[in-house]
Design a protein around this nucleic acid. Structure first.
Lengths: 245, 245
DNA sequence: TGCTGTTATTTATACGACAAATAAGGGAAG
DNA sequence: CTTCCCTTATTTGTCGTATAAATAACAGCA
């Protein structure tokens, strides 16, 4: 019998607001890490015994995993991990687990390939539908970026605030869903691009987007935003998937 | 005391594979319908009593709703419905409930504003990364559309298969997530556009996309796909949000 | 060999009890 | 009368046990 079978998944104290959420986090992270690609997913009784919690807690955690598309349960057959294509990648938990799992250049590229589709259109929609509050938020983000260049503010937070404000200004609930995706993508992306090249985010390009939105010029906003993310994509080497990683 | 408080949410037999999923469906639909915008979300005990199920079933259903971002629970405070901005719109259940709730032109426009961002880029990526199997699937979808014009196949299914195949061919897991969104959007969108104009999907435009992908020409694929969805958008009247609806 | 009925395993459901958190109300002090 | 603190009640959180339902695996029979 394999000894690692009984190894605790997370060493320290359980994470989360309560036992159920801690269990959810532990199991979710284990699934995304690929722990159950070789061995079968344990039964409710095994999970409860291994982690020292009641079966109720176990079941509720598994039900939450089911709701996120990670697993599927049937009597006698047990609980099985679903193929990754069924996972809800835009769920914040799944997204977080995915990032903690492996941060690869491939993942970063996939992130930004999504951004290059979403954000230019969001900018165009913002130019059409953004109200005074939205414009104010966008402009404030830009000002913080400028302040960041002088060391008076956090440039990364400002950058994120700018992009999130545009997503919100699109007045489309589907675009608003990408706030978490873009935030995490930006947070990791910028850390990575700065490691390659010393430059921080291009404030002038961002200003061009803001100007176009304020001028109510959708196509100009779209092209300006495309340039920003296009730069990021070329910087991280958009091309054939890296076979070395 | 309001009498409708005790009115069963769903008349017929519970839906779903088991009691918990039936409960999930009933409660989820009720939340999205806005039933708890005026009255507070019931306590576990109330739900169990009203629907004649055990508290275990109730709790597991609520936990699934929590996982999808619809509600949040705290001791003594009870379970509260989260603002719609916190809902995971790309969850298939939430998406389905949203569609059944109210099918408005606004929703249809939001759908297609998303498609016009995603699908052209997906087509461009498909031209770069799609393998032989992907190309085959895309071509097969196109052939079925042509067969559909002659009444030999279902044009709607063929159309959906075509677009889904391109999403898959992008080789980007984030794009693959949109399969369900695009399927439902298309299924309702086409029914709506056909009601306006007698024409069915434009096979020639779709062929242009397929040709560009097979020719490995990303930018041509992008523009061709943009035309298809742009047509849909203008058809349903993309402009200021309809104030009459 | 192929069908059929039995058995064992695992999730599904129900019930009861107690713990923990906390909002609301009441009472004492100033 | 106001403020602060303590008590109390309500609701979710956790546990344990028991039983039902579904079904995969197996054994036995024709």
């Amino acid at each position: 019998m394999d000894v690692t079978e009984f190894e605790p998944l997370a060493p320290g104290p359980a994470q989360g607001r309560n036992l159920t959420h801690g269990m959810l986090d532990t199991l979710g992270r284990a699934i995304v890490t690929g722990r159950y690609e070789t061995r079968p997913f344990p039964t409710e009784a095994e999970i409860a015994k291994t982690h020292g919690v009641s079966r109720s807690v176990t079941r509720e955690a598994v039900k939450m995993l089911t709701a996120k598309g990670l697993v599927s349960a049937r009597p006698r057959q047990g609980t099985v991990v679903q193929p990754a294509s069924a996972w809800n990648l835009f769920d914040t938990d799944v997204l977080r687990w995915t990032l903690e799992r492996k941060f690869s250049v491939d993942l970063l590229r996939h992130f930004n390939q999504l951004r290059v589709a979403i954000e230019p259109e969001a900018a165009a929609l913002a130019a059409r539908f953004g109200d005074a509050d939205d414009i104010r938020a966008i402009r404030h983000g830009l000002e913080q970026m400028e302040a960041g260049e002088a060391g008076l503010a956090d440039p990364l937070d400002a950058d994120i605030a700018f992009h999130v404000a545009i997503l919100r200004a699109s007045k489309n609930p589907f675009y608003a869903q990408f706030q978490s995706v873009v935030s995490t993508a930006l947070r990791t992306s910028i850390r990575f691009t700065n490691r390659i090249k010393g430059r921080s985010a291009n404030v002038a390009d961002h200003a061009a987007v803001a100007d176009a939105i304020m001028a109510r010029d959708p196509s100009a906003a779209r092209t300006a935003m495309t340039r920003i993310i296009g730069d990021v994509l070329t910087l991280i080497g958009d091309g054939e998937p890296s076979s070395t990683d």
